[in-house]
Design a protein around this nucleic acid. Structure first.
Lengths: 207, 207
DNA sequence: ATCGAACTGCACTGGCCAGTGCATTTTACT
DNA sequence: AGTAAAATGCACTGGCCAGTGCAGTTCGAT
């Protein structure tokens, strides 16, 4: 049915395996042999599809970024004008926190950080494919809440930046850069702290 | 005068060179030969002092963390009860921002992130030597401001965490993980944004 | 002046791994 | 059934680098 189905399947299998192995071992430590084995594929096949190790890595990062984007955009959908700001922000906060603490997200950030020096463009790729879009979407939704009189916001972009900051920075510290799983109660508390502070600063009756 | 002075000097030279080279090339990519050359020392001397590459790396990280601690604690000294909260917070914010954006700080975070998987204990070392102490010191000072009626804070630890979040997360994004130098005007603006939001949430006339 | 510890220069081993070549087999499509 | 593209298995090269061994030199202390 599908054209060259076997080929496409293998490509995806390699991509998945590459992510798993790179996330576990890191880019340098991971061997192409290991990736091939994890994908159930001959090493040659990997090279046939991706040319060299670096291209494979890039492809894996890009796929990961796209995946993160859709998950984050979905998380934002809980932020609606027709809802109570407090409850809505809390739910979005929780959703975003869960995305942020996902094992895949941590792996992506780790790999990015680690190879920042040797592949500086990777960061731009991830930013333009995921981070920026999520921030913009969040700013858009905050702007609508502000228009509806539910928030007092001068610059939606700054507000979005700070909402993200109040969420992610504490999560980063508390999860110890992703090496510790945050218990649900602590996660909820962190989200609650972020939302409370955000609302004190930007809520409808903020000074 | 000093016992085995020559030895101590070499040790420090190696440590400095190790930091420079590791920061530039990354732990894996950096060669011990390169470090030795940068220190003006024979490779054997490096092994005499530090045993193996990993121990050298750990020692360099620890020295870096200690250095960061003292710089950050100094930065906090601008936060005084006898000053205007706004001006005081802004100055501390600026000081901390400068520490955070320092090339050494970025190098430390990068190396930490990159080797997180292979040396998980490094993070604990850095946290206990630097991060935690800075956060505690900040929380202490905020508590004194609160006692003096200049801030409305329930939990100083959370307030400190969030002040840090409002500062560092935007800086991380805007400097693109340290690969871009933030112009002074933008840095000031970021600090100002953070302080304004913090004061709206925790200022004396916050709701 | 002498002794010993620390340092040097150089050559070498052993392991790791990206990437290649080739002969063979499987798969997809006609 | 036949064909070409894709995949496989395996052996191999070449480069990189941590760590060692050794013979000789410098330096600080007594």
């Amino acid at each position: 049915m599908t054209v060259t189905r076997g080929r496409i399947d293998k490509r995806q299998a390699i991509l998945d395996a590459a992510f798993t192995v790179f996330a576990r071992d890191g880019y340098r430590q991971a061997g192409v042999d290991t990736v091939a084995a994890a994908a159930g594929v001959a090493k040659h096949t990997v090279y046939n599809h991706f040319g060299d190790k670096q291209s494979l890595f890039r492809a894996a990062i890009e796929a990961l970024a796209d995946d993160a984007l859709t998950r984050n955009l979905t998380a934002l959908e809980a932020l609606r004008v027709d809802r109570d700001a407090d409850a809505s922000l809390t739910e979005v906060g929780r959703n975003l926190a869960i995305c942020y603490c996902d094992e895949k997200s941590w792996a992506l950030r780790r790999l990015l950080y680690a190879e920042l020096a040797s592949m500086p463009d990777l960061q731009d790729i991830v930013r333009s494919r995921a981070t920026d879009k999520v921030n913009n979407a969040l700013a858009d939704r905050l702007a609508r809440l502000a228009l509806a009189g539910k928030l007092r916001i001068k610059d939606p972009a700054v507000a979005a930046e700070q909402f993200g900051a109040l969420l992610t920075a504490p999560l980063e510290a508390r999860s110890r850069l992703g090496t510790r799983k945050i218990p649900a109660s602590e996660l909820n508390e962190t989200v609650w702290n972020a939302v409370q502070t955000f609302l004190r600063a930007f809520g409808p009756d903020a000074r």
